[in-house]
């Protein structure tokens, strides 16, 4: 199964295997990774599963769609490599993906 590495704001790393099709947010929630709140449960409606896509993974995860961009524009700590992890679906192509978690989910 493809793997994702989540790096908490304090540097703690979690390497997790996710089934293809699962969202990166779901993987974090299912594995109790601190720093992802996902208040809306994956509806792209709250920006509390915000992650920074590490390195050169961004072209492969894709960039935010309209709704996601709109929500991200209200996130306090958004950067050019910001994504909402509920909108990133795992696939074999994303095996090895690394995402960093922001200071806080706002």
């Amino acid at each position: 199964m493809p793997q994702v590495t989540y790096i908490e704001h304090n540097g703690t790393e979690h390497r997790i295997e996710l089934e293809a099709g699962q969202s990166v947010m779901q993987g974090a929630v299912n594995n109790n990774i601190p720093g992802i709140d996902a208040d809306c449960g994956g509806e792209c409606a709250c920006a509390t599963c915000h992650v920074y896509v590490e390195g050169d993974w961004l072209p492969r995860t894709g960039t935010p769609g309209e709704q996601e961009a709109s929500m991200l524009s209200f996130a306090a700590t958004a950067q050019p490599n910001s994504r909402l992890s509920c909108q990133i679906r795992m696939s074999e192509e994303l095996d090895g993906l690394v995402v960093r978690l922001p200071e806080a989910q706002h």
Partner: peptide, 15 residues
């Protein structure tokens, strides 16, 4: 516990 509607969702979510 954070799964609730009190803050609303979407662009008007409670600032």
């Amino acid at each position: 516990p954070r799964q609730h509607l009190s803050f609303g969702f979407g662009v008007h979510r409670c600032v």
